[in-house]
Amino acid sequence: MALRAPQPYANPYVAGTCLGLVLLAAFVLTGRGLGASGAFAATSTSAVRAVAPEAAQTSPYFSRYLEADGRARPWHDWLVIEILGVVAGGLVSAVAAGRWRLTLARGRGVSPGARVTAAMGGGAAMGAGAVLARGCTSGQALTGGAMLSVGSWIFIAAAFGGAYAFARPLRALWSGRRVGGSTR
């Protein structure tokens, strides 16, 4: 199968303005903004409940994602359905633009093992951070930022600050120097 040449990405200001209109539509039509980490929390809760029902029910964190009868129904959760839409929308866009590729995107010369380890570790750090912060780049930075929430702007400053502070020590993950087995 011949792969089509991928189209170039959209202008970031045009794409950002479109994203802002999507967020505005969510505010006006649903009274709330966008989110992502909340979908992970709701889905995690159903996994915790399946393995350890009493732990889910007594947990001050997970119990908030249970319904009144104590059951977990993530498919009733607004953010879980929204994230399923995100997956569908991303898939349609990538296929239409010739950008769908089964690949492991990584810095040049970075070994697959190092990339997967960093991706899982980074994901875990973001998951833990999002629980503490009550949201992520979608629910706090974009949504709370546009609503001018003080906590959301603290999150924006801390997240960018943290990423820039750790960028230098983690440089090898993106340039391939001194990390993993198979540097060029």
Partner: peptide, 21 residues
């Protein structure tokens, strides 16, 4: 917690190159 959560989130963001969404 939003300040500390943000710092930890930022560390994860630059380690993996993606955010949850």
């Amino acid at each position: 917690p939003q300040f500390l959560g943000g710092l930890v989130f930022g560390l994860g963001f630059v380690a993996c190159g993606l955010c949850p969404g």
